[in-house]
Design a protein around this nucleic acid. Structure first.
Length: 576
DNA sequence: GCCGTTTTCGGCCCGACTGTTTTCAGTCG
């Protein structure tokens, strides 16, 4: 069983125990364990093989370790099967409806025999829900509305779509006189790959004027609510955005609170309680004296707790608080550390811009180098022309390297790893190039062993430098390939090959947790945009966001190397 | 069920909102 399956079982156990009215701290322990397992960088199956003790994981004790083991060895859990049998079938589905918690779900299932969302809708419409004790017309109507919202609920929006909209809005609002702070909080600020809704926070001399401008922005499709300090609106794609204007002296506490993650904040509060402090969005209260400390910025908030400042991207309760106590949070990679892009396309394959355009755009970003890595096959490249194309590219790069000073172009290719594991170009061609990026673009549905061997085969080819978008996923479009990433990571580390963090917002591949694990295993990572147009080069920051969420430093990322070291690195390739 | 700088028992995160109450339970973020 995969970690995600195990985590789901514990989540469901927490829900079922909640339905039962069991001890709430026991319930929290299961829910917490589910969270922890969901965020584990390594599969528990593998940890088991390696003889690691699950109880060393914070949040997992004797009971949950044993239950996890049972699931890994037998594929199921008797405790869970027995527990499920105590309830009407489908009761857990009711908990997906906003506004329905365990108490309500249990009553609906037992008193009205409701076991699905459809049945619930019927029960509301024929008046049975409103007739229950401590329920009424209003509650029933609210649940019905929640069902409607649930049914048409759009999936989470990719960060790459949400962030530009938000930035555009904030930039217009920043021009209003008296605005002091204005920024996103929530998962957007933490650079999660998708966002549910958008939290914006600000301070201003005249907060109401900012609210009024906010609801009139051209991006706003619908105003849900509007008050003197807070407004909620609907943006394109059904995205909800809340703007909250607060007192200047409270900004740090509120920003910290609304940035989350929830898990990070819970861990912070638990820790603070032991110091006699109570945390809330309004500040830090000394429990004995009742004195409330306020914070205008986050730095002073963390400092007051005796903690180093924690970057938003790693506020996930993955050990960052313990490190902050020791002042040991590393300096995470920043966009300014990136010295070049190692994966881009031009009109020679399926790109929109010429080699020269791409070179000048990269130079404008301050890069020292740019690798030209058009596809080995596909659009614009017939099988008999692919070697001829490369010969032409080599000549043009030689010319441009003389005519455009300040940026060094690398002769490269993105070579297909074919279904049978062979590369789309012969070794004697690859050896003529400065850099070779290899990737899968076909037969995405191969079984795990075949796909894993296919990728590891490419890693072992001495001419290959980087494996691009290792899982081939596209967010909301294509599931990741079934591949044993742990094996791929170990092979990459052993062979000194880099794996890509593809920075395009619809890919972000490797994703945060995978990159985290790869880094742990000593794999060199390369953040590349896979640009198909000049403006795509700006997507680098999304890849940097993933790398920061993976706790990557300067030294973990290949393309932080200055040109001289990069050329040195590439020299290890076998000469022709 | 988990955990330990008030350790092996006795604790366990905080505040707002809503609806249905007349002092609060349930749900959410």
């Amino acid at each position: 069983m995969k970690n995600s399956d195990i985590a789901t079982v514990f989540e469901n156990i927490a829900d079922l125990l909640d339905l039962k009215g069991d001890n709430k701290f026991k319930i929290r322990a299961y829910a917490r364990a589910a969270q922890v397992i969901h965020h584990l960088p390594e599969e528990m199956e593998l940890m088991h093989e390696e003889g690691k003790d699950f109880q060393d994981i914070t949040g997992i004790g004797d009971a949950i370790a044993k239950k996890s083991m049972e699931m890994i060895t037998t594929g199921k859990l008797k405790f869970y099967e027995d527990l499920k049998a105590e309830f009407p079938k489908g009761i857990i589905n009711l908990l997906d409806i906003p506004g329905i918690g365990p108490k309500t779900a249990y009553r609906l299932a037992t008193e009205l025999n409701v076991g699905s969302v459809d049945q619930l809708e019927k029960a509301i419409k024929d008046g049975r829900v409103a007739s229950l004790e401590r329920m009424g017309e209003k509650t029933a109507a609210n649940i019905l509305h929640s069902i409607e919202v649930f049914r048409r609920k759009d999936r989470r929006i990719p960060l790459g779509e949400a962030l530009p909209i938000v930035e555009e809005m904030l930039n217009s609002l920043r021009h209003i006189a008296g605005v002091q702070n204005l920024m996103p909080a929530g998962s957007l600020r933490r650079f999660k790959e998708t966002v549910g809704d958008i939290d914006l926070m600000g301070t201003a001399d005249d907060p109401e004027s900012v609210i009024q401008a906010f609801v009139k922005l051209p991006q706003v499709r619908e105003v849900l609510s509007q008050g003197p300090t807070k407004a909620s609106v609907i943006l394109p794609k059904g995205l909800q955005a809340d703007l909250r204007m607060v007192e200047h002296e409270d900004f740090g506490s509120l920003l910290q609170h609304f940035t989350g993650s929830k898990e990070h904040n819970v861990a912070l509060r638990t820790r603070s309680q032991k110091q006699g402090l109570s945390l809330s969005e309004y500040g830090i209260t000394d429990i004995k004296t009742g004195k409330v400390e306020k914070f205008a910025d986050e730095e002073s908030f963390y400092r007051f707790l005796g903690l180093q400042y924690i970057p938003p991207e790693i506020r996930e309760d993955m050990g960052e608080i313990a490190l902050a106590e020791k002042n040991a949070i590393p300096r995470l990679i920043e966009i300014g550390d990136i010295k070049g892009d190692l994966h881009i396309h031009t009109v020679s394959s399926d790109g929109n811009d010429t080699l020269e355009d791409m070179a000048r755009a990269a130079k404008a970003l301050g890069y020292q180098y740019l690798a030209i890595t058009d596809h080995s096959s596909g659009r614009n490249i017939t099988a008999d022309k692919k070697i001829e194309r490369l010969t032409g590219q080599i000549a043009e790069i030689k010319r441009l390297n003389q005519s455009i000073p300040g940026i060094y172009l690398l002769n490269g290719v993105e070579v297909d790893i074919r279904a049978d594991g062979s590369l789309d170009l012969p070794d004697e061609v690859l050896t003529e190039l400065d850099i070779v990026v290899a990737s899968v673009h076909s037969s995405f549905l191969q079984d795990r062993a075949t796909m894993t061997n296919r990728i590891i085969g490419a890693i072992k080819n001495p001419h290959v430098d980087i494996i691009a978008h290792p899982t081939t996923r596209k967010i909301g479009e294509r599931e990741p390939a079934d591949v044993d990433l742990e094996a791929v990571f170990r092979a990459a580390a052993a062979n000194g090959k880099a794996l890509e963090i593809n920075a395009m917002p619809d890919r972000l591949d490797l994703k945060d947790l995978h990159a985290y694990r790869a880094r742990e295993l000593g794999v060199m990572l390369a953040i590349c945009t896979d640009s198909h147009a000049t403006w795509h080069l700006n997507m680098m920051r999304f890849g940097v966001g993933v790398a920061r969420r993976a706790w990557c430093q300067h030294k973990d990322i290949l393309n932080t190397l200055p040109l001289k070291d990069m050329l040195e690195f590439l020299k290890r390739r076998p000469a022709g």
